[in-house]
Amino acid sequence: MSKSAVKIKNEESIKEKEDYEYIVDLKHIDKFYYTGVATQVLFDINLQFKAGSVNSIVGPSGSGKSTLMNILGTLDKPTKGEVYIAGKRTDQMSKNELAILRNQTIGFVFQFHYLLPEYTALENVLMPFEISRQKVTSKVKEKAINLMKFIGIEDVKDNLATKMSGGQQQRTAIARSLMNNPKILLADEPTGNLDTEATDKVYNLFREINEKFGTTLIVITHERRIAEKTDRIIEIRDGKIHLDLYK
């Protein structure tokens, strides 16, 4: 990309910023699962996230954290309620519109890290970029490798996704989620498999990304080490926001 293009892009994103108060805005979200009987797992959730904030979501297993995150990430639709991402209402968008939105705006680190086993670690990291249909230049590759270096997996960059340890896979998934400089990073137990040192590293990486790019972080975690360092802790219990604490 030329310099002027970068500039234009920045100006655009600044402009966009003015259009909305919250990067993520959930209004009156209900979620039911229908498995024979209807089970309600989210109850009238109202939740706003400021752009550039660092947030954690905690709560017991089965409380609805992943469900909430999937709705936040536009992968799932709420049974009732409205979801706004960067000022745009998403719960009525078409699947293809959502796909573009996700690719450009949201980085995911899933609870079960989900790499593509047909691809090497590096190729996995590059995938979001490829999906955006831009050309993978050597510069882009360098960026991917730098990301991998930063979280300490450059040694395994040419390994197939299946030929890595759980922790390496997880870190690859994190690098991948950051590839497109998303406005929002959604991470579901991103450090589940990592030791304390790696956990701290991941957190530091998140912080750095947040500071450098203003990425909004929303992290589901049961790790106190991570949660206590975020600016806001949201505790979900039984499908409701039980606590919403700011540092």
């Binding site: 949660a227 206590e228 802790i233 604490l245 540092k247």
Partner: peptide
């Protein structure tokens, strides 16, 4: 003292 333990306090 720790902000995270507010949850435990609650």
């Amino acid at each position: 003292t720790n902000y995270f333990t507010l949850i435990e306090a609650e």
